[in-house]
Simulated assay, not measured.
Amino acid sequence: MGEIVNLNRVRKDRAKAEARATATANRAAHGRSKAERTKAEAERERAARLLDGSKLED
């Protein structure tokens, strides 16, 4: 016979895990200094220019 599971507890645990994952993502996105954000944006723009410059014309 299987183990008895409280479905309300499982639902709450799942919601807490999702909230922790969201909080982690928000800390990564918003918990950076302005210098770090500027540097990351410049790196993304550089990569985009490099990719666009590497495309072959038909």
Rank of each mutant, 00 (worst) to 15 (best):
A19S: 08
L50C: 06
R14K: 12
A17T: 08
N6I: 14
R49Q: 14
L56V: 15
N26G: 01
N8A: 13
A35D: 07
E3Q: 13
L7Y: 02
A42E: 11
L51R: 13
K55A: 14
E36T: 04
A21Q: 09
A35Q: 06
A42G: 02
R11Q: 09
N8P: 00
E36I: 02
H30L: 10
R49H: 12
E43G: 01
E18H: 03
L56N: 12
I4C: 07
A47Q: 10
L50F: 05
I4K: 11
E36C: 01
A25Q: 13
E43P: 00
R20G: 04
A48C: 03
A29V: 02
A25Y: 07
D52M: 11
L50Q: 15
R44T: 08
L50R: 14
D13T: 08
A40K: 05
E45C: 09
G31T: 03
H30Q: 07
N26A: 13
K39H: 07
D13F: 03
R14E: 12
T24W: 02
A42Y: 01
K16Q: 10
A28R: 10
S54P: 02
D13R: 08
L7H: 04
R37S: 10
K39P: 00
T38E: 14
A25H: 09
L51F: 10
V5F: 05
A21I: 08
V10N: 00
A48W: 03
A47N: 07
A40H: 04
R44I: 09
T22N: 12
A19Y: 06
I4Q: 09
R27N: 14
E36Q: 13
S54C: 07
G53K: 01
T24F: 05
A42N: 10
R32C: 05
S33V: 05
K34T: 12
T24Y: 05
K39Y: 05
R20N: 11
T24A: 15
A28H: 06
A15K: 08
L50K: 14
S33G: 09
A35L: 05
G53P: 00
A29H: 03
A29T: 04
D52H: 10
R14F: 12
T38I: 11
V10S: 03
R32F: 00
T22V: 12
